[in-house]
Amino acid sequence: MIKRMTAAGILALAMGSASMPAFASGWPVFDAANFLKNTLTAAQALKTEVYENTNIAYQYKMMLNQLTQATGLDPAALAEQANVIKADISKLEEYGQTLQSLYGGISESADFLARVQSLVVVSGKTPEQWFQDQRTLIGNGDKAAKQLFSIARKIAGNNQSLAKRRAKIQEDMTLSPTAQATAEATNHMLDVLASQNSDVLQLMSAKAQSDATKDQRALAADTEATNVTQQIQRDQEAQLNKLRQTVFKN
């Protein structure tokens, strides 16, 4: 119990120091160190949950073993209790498999971010310049850039679906207060990663850039059309006033 509380406390401190990426000119700023730190923290939190879940499942199996060896109990009540424990074990095992899959996905995210960071460093450019190059390459159909973007999109989508599955299983399980606190802390870190993964995809997406440019052009066209309409109305009003003055003089 003390170890679990300590782990939860450390994770809470880590979350407090985790900051969301800044924005400049409407685009996220790639902070590789911050991304990797949050990713590794989330991975460690999931690893802790896997360990805790394995211990809890083991305890349930021990309870089931003791129950099946008990004597002098009502057979119907014994069977009912055994079925309840078996159902709990099934949920814990399903939860454990989802946690392990999500841990693997987060580890892939860390590997991808490390790869992107190394590519930025090797290029000798700033992260903003490198992502601009990638957007241009993706727009021109470059295979390497498209593959890199495809990997990022696949990892982000997989992690998101696994996180939703994890949350769904949590709703059907009864967690201890300590385990619940740890799960909530992990959920927060997964939310941070979801936001940061979205930022990376936005930085690399040529479509996002083209959509933004299209929106700016549409806004400019609307503004120009509005100005023209207002000028026509002013001209019409001026002509009408001039006509009225002529009629009244006559």
Rank of each mutant, 00 (worst) to 15 (best):
M5Y: 07
T6C: 03
A8R: 12
L11I: 15
A12S: 04
A12R: 07
L13C: 13
A14Y: 06
M15K: 10
A18Q: 03
M20W: 01
A24K: 10
G26K: 08
P28I: 02
P28F: 02
V29N: 00
N38V: 14
A43M: 10
Q44S: 08
E49K: 15
I56V: 09
L64D: 03
T68S: 00
Q69I: 07
Q69D: 15
L73Q: 06
A76G: 00
E80I: 02
E80H: 00
Q81E: 12
A82Q: 05
N83P: 02
V84Q: 02
S90M: 11
L92A: 07
G104P: 06
I106N: 05
S109K: 13
S109C: 04
Q117P: 07
S118A: 08
S118L: 06
S118C: 00
P127W: 13
F131K: 08
Q134Y: 15
L137W: 13
G139V: 08
G141F: 11
A144V: 15
A144L: 14
K146W: 01
I151W: 12
A152Y: 15
R153I: 01
I155P: 10
I155H: 14
R166E: 04
K168L: 08
I169K: 01
E171I: 11
M173L: 10
T178W: 03
A179T: 11
Q180W: 09
Q180C: 06
Q180M: 11
A185K: 14
M189E: 00
V192R: 12
L193F: 05
A194W: 00
A194I: 00
A194H: 03
S195M: 11
S195F: 07
Q196Y: 08
Q196C: 02
V200P: 02
L201T: 03
Q209Y: 12
D211R: 15
K214C: 02
K214L: 10
K214D: 04
D215F: 05
A218Q: 11
L219V: 07
A220S: 06
T223L: 03
E224C: 05
N227V: 15
Q230H: 10
Q230W: 09
I232K: 07
Q233S: 10
E237F: 07
R244E: 06
K249A: 07
